[in-house]
Design a protein around this nucleic acid. Structure first.
Lengths: 229, 229
DNA sequence: AAGGAAAGGATTGTTGAACGATTCCGCAAC
DNA sequence: GTTGCGGAATCGTTCAACAATCCTTTCCTT
């Protein structure tokens, strides 16, 4: 048996990722929040949720903490946990970060060809979601596209941060009615960006992306402000 | 009573910042790690530390979670908490993120003048630290300088991320002997960048910064690899 | 002597209960 | 209408206990 095989196994073991109960609970709750089952502003009582999930308060609190640091839950001392409610400023900041990081990811590209697999898959998924009018899924696909952009930087930490940013953005999308309006127009624009990258035109892609993000921010911030007010 | 006054009060309330025991414990531990008292790789036993600090295991675990999320501690299931030990790849990734974010922060600048207060204060602090040969403090000042660069983007989330990145970097600095080597050469370069920004030459500052980060990464990665191997 | 199974101790993971502290809510008094 | 005062509900924190897991040592087999 070669050392090579053993190394692969030990890699797999890490991927196997044994998880604690708290992490699994956090995973369940994260899903509920991201899928929109738990609406922003909703309070998550320890007793109630702990009973429903069959875990103790301590374990549940540990799960809450994980989600708090992902900014999906907000903690108010002696009052409890709430599904985070983004302000318009939060939304603006999320786009500020997106513009900073996503554009930077394109700018630092070296010579083509680029690893466009994730972005390509996201566009494909978006097309079929649109065809079947699954607008929420279209939104997810668009997010994966932009996750793919950041992946081009090849930085695990940047990927992580982007994952968090996009998760937060869902808190906004889920309170908006009419999801189609906010997702459909951007599918062809994603494809434009992808095409530019395929042609090796990274600066062009970056320009497209910058305009894209500004448009999206404006539209979303307007809609969100109206929804809140 | 005007609404204005009420708003200010509610702002103050946030600053009042009541903190839980766990947060205070996390603060103490963070200090120990950042100041170098707890060396990377060191194991933090729940029982032992909890007894020393006079808090229960549960509360301590809550503090551990906070620090885990800042990537200062690493958690291994059923084995415990360890002060994080960065690999050379981690170090490279940290610089990848820095280059991405810091350069992007300079690039997105609008017209001068810029809010250079933080950077200016950092250079001043660095000068006096150098004069008194407090090399560790000089390192801290340099970090504040780069924190200041990111602040130019005006994004709380970017600030947050940068804070985390720099905290992680300390894990590297603290295992390096000869801190002077890694800090002193960069003080004048920070001043150069600051001067360029004062002159309103953001693109020039960005170029300087990019070279700075590449140099620093190379030097630090080399030294770190030697230290580990 | 080398390798591997078994046992034991130590530490973590999770639970349940307890008690003080804080907040929320309704009601009475001014 | 506002202020003050309970009472209920919930959170913050601690403690004790047990199961699960890991680490080390011992012992057995070859």
């Amino acid at each position: 048996m070669t050392d090579n095989v053993l190394e692969e196994l030990s890699d797999d073991r890490r991927l196997l990722g044994r998880t604690s109960t708290a992490e699994r609970v956090a995973g369940i709750l994260r899903g509920r929040i991201i899928e929109g089952g738990f609406r922003p502003g909703m309070r998550l009582a320890e007793e109630e949720i702990g009973r429903a999930l069959g875990v103790s308060r301590n374990t549940l609190r540990e799960a809450f903490r994980l989600l708090t640091h992902e900014r999906l839950l907000a903690h108010e001392l002696n009052r409890g946990m709430f599904v985070r409610k983004l302000t318009v400023e939060d939304l603006e900041d999320l786009y500020r970060v997106r513009r900073l990081v996503e554009c930077a990811a394109l700018r630092q590209l070296a010579a083509p060809p680029y690893a466009l697999h994730t972005m390509d898959a996201a566009v494909t998924a978006g097309l079929s979601a649109r065809a079947e009018e699954r607008w929420r899924d279209l939104g997810t696909a668009n997010m994966h596209f932009h996750q793919g952009i950041v992946e081009l930087a090849g930085s695990p930490r940047a990927d992580d941060m982007m994952r968090g940013v996009l998760a937060e953005l869902r808190l906004v999308f889920h309170v908006m009615e009419n999801p189609r309006r906010f997702h459909e127009p951007y599918l062809p624009r994603n494809r434009e960006i992808l095409d530019a990258l395929r042609d090796g035109d990274a600066p062009g892609a970056e320009r497209l992306l910058a305009v894209y993000l500004d448009d999206s921010r404006r539209q979303l911030a307007d809609g969100y402000a109206r929804q809140l007010g």
